[in-house]
Each structure stands twice: as C-alpha cells, then as structure tokens.
C-alpha cells in the first residue's frame, strides 16, 4: 500500500493526434496540499479529468488511494470531490438547490447544504438563482459542491479563478484548514507560482503535458533562488564596484543590477556599501522568479 493519494505511472493521453499528457508520473502524498502548476494548456485540466475518470486513461497508469481507477471508478469517486474548470452549476436553480441536488445524488442528508453554504459564505445568497451569481460566488458554490460529500481527496482546478483578493485569501485559508484540521489531501492547480507557494506543501510543475519538476515546496525554493534587484544610478560603475567587492552579478540591465539574494542583513550591507561609495540607490528589493523564469531554469537544468 503506497502513501500516495494519487499516483500516475507514465501516464499518456492523446486527443486524436495531439499528445496532451506525456509520460506523467504524479505522486501526491496523502495529507498534502499538492500544487499542480503550469501555464494554460499545459495539461492540468486534462490530468484532473483523467483522475476523475471523465477521460479514459490506459489501464494501470492511474491509481487513486492505491487503486486502479478504471476498475474502481465508483469506489474511487466516493472519496473524491472536485471542481473542474468553470464550476458546473445549474443556473436555473438557487445555490441551495444546487447543493440539495448534489446531496440527493450522493445520498446524504439535505441539511448538509446549509452547512456548506455557511462554510463558503453564501448563506445570504442561498435562495438566489445561481445564474445571477457573480463569478466569485459561482466559484465558491463550486467549492461547496466539491466539499459536500466530505471527500478525503479534493481536486481543485484553479479554484481562485475570478475571486477577489478577499476571496482568494478565504479559499487559501480554507484549503490549509481542510488539510491540517481535517486531514484531507488536496490537489490544487494554478498557473500562478505565488498562489501555490502560499499554500502547497508539495509542487508538481507541468508544461506541454510533461512533468518538469516534482517535490516539496522547499525543494522548489532551492530551485527558484530569489534575487536582489538593485535600481541604481551610474550602473556600469556600480556593477564593477559590486563585482570587485566580491558579489556575483547575476544580471544587469541599463537600470538594474541583479545579484543572488542571501539574507536581509546582507542586503542592508550592500545598500550601505553602495551609498558610502557615492552611488544613489533608488530601490533595493528581493525578487522571486516568476513561473516563466522558473520554467526556463528547470528546462535548462534538464
């Protein structure tokens, strides 16, 4: 019995001639928040659909809770809640009715719908038709629908899509809460590194259907070394001066110098050094790599 809630073994998936997922070996540890990161069209949604058996995967390539998905479809789906792409909601029903309908399908008590509405903060909009909901409200209803069966594994496809900053924070806290207090495993996809970094314990990065990186969030941080970005006048001299002082110049543009970030104390020392030597420092801040640069790095390393 493996410790993985989800395990795919060399998963391949094609739409006709187009390969959407290529030799994908996901390993999502039980109890983790697994950030599934990749640009649009990387194969994230396809993978999630395969994990829900909406798309037929080849035999013996996809295992959920250690069981092959095609031969254990119903047993697996009982333990999984999902939000795929745009939340699937019956627009002519109210938020509450959407949840009650799901309760009917799952054979659970209808009062659960009220709890879920309260959990995602839709109690006041419970009796409003859901096609009148804002995108953020729909998204929250979608999350409530995914949670209503109290599943052990949650598959959330870009759950913060369309949410305002407040909503994003709420979803983030909800995920952390579910994983820590309720021992759920969550696979959450996103195309924003910053979004994943804040919640995930583990990360998988996918691009063009291939897994580029998989590991813990700390392993990712080792990969994506932060940089210190210095905006300064007299850039040529400044760069020369820094290099002479023993700092490694990572990059240099006509306005900025990039050097590897070590600690905030070191950043302060550099600042003092520059000012004492007559340079004017307009800004100095820690910069994290965005997904694009991270991809470049990872692909370079591969």
């Amino acid at each position: 019995m493996s410790n993985f809630a989800i395990e795919t073994v060399g998963l391949n998936y094609n739409f006709g001639n187009q390969t959407v997922v290529k030799d994908l070996s996901l390993q999502v540890p039980t109890g983790s928040i697994y950030g599934f990161l990749g640009p649009n069209g990387a194969g994230k949604t396809t993978t999630i659909k395969i994990l829900l058996n909406l798309l037929q995967s080849p035999a013996d390539q996809v295992f959920v809770f250690g069981k092959e998905i095609n031969s254990n479809r119903i047993a697996t789906l009982k333990r999984v809640g999902a939000l795929v792409e745009q939340p699937a909601i019956y627009g002519h029903l109210t938020g509450k009715e959407n949840l009650i309908n799901r309760c009917i399908l799952l054979g659970i008590r209808k009062s659960k719908s009220d709890e879920m509405l309260a959990l995602v903060g839709l109690t006041e909009a419970a009796n409003k038709k859901s096609n009148k909901y804002s995108l953020g409200m729909k998204q929250r209803l979608g999350i409530a629908l995914a949670l209503v069966s109290d599943p052990e594994l949650l598959l959330l496809d870009e759950p913060t899509n369309g949410l305002d900053p407040n909503g994003i924070i709420e979803v983030r806290n909800l995920m952390i809460d579910l994983a820590t207090k309720h021992k759920k495993t969550i696979l959450v996809s996103s195309h924003l590194l910053a979004e994943i970094e804040r919640t995930a314990t583990h990360v998988g990065i996918i691009n063009k259907g291939q897994l580029l990186f998989q590991g813990t969030i700390n392993e990712l941080h080792l990969l994506s070394k932060p940089m210190l970005e210095i905006e300064i006048d007299n850039i040529e001299h400044a760069a020369e001066f820094l290099a002479n002082s023993g700092y490694q110049i990572a990059d240099q543009t006509d306005k900025k110098i990039l050097i590897p970030y070590t600690s905030s104390k070191d950043s302060g020392t550099i600042n003092t050094l520059l000012i004492q030597n007559g340079f004017t420092v307009s800004s100095l801040y820690q910069q994290r790599k965005d997904l694009e640069n991270l991809f470049l790095d990872i692909t370079k390393n591969n």
Binding site: K49, L52, N53, L77, V80, V84, A88
Partner: peptide
C-alpha cells in the same frame, strides 16, 4: 462532467 464524476 460533474454528473459523471459522481459515484454512480
């Protein structure tokens, strides 16, 4: 997609 993702 949700309908067919239910344990039915």
């Amino acid at each position: 997609k949700t309908l067919f993702a239910q344990p039915l």
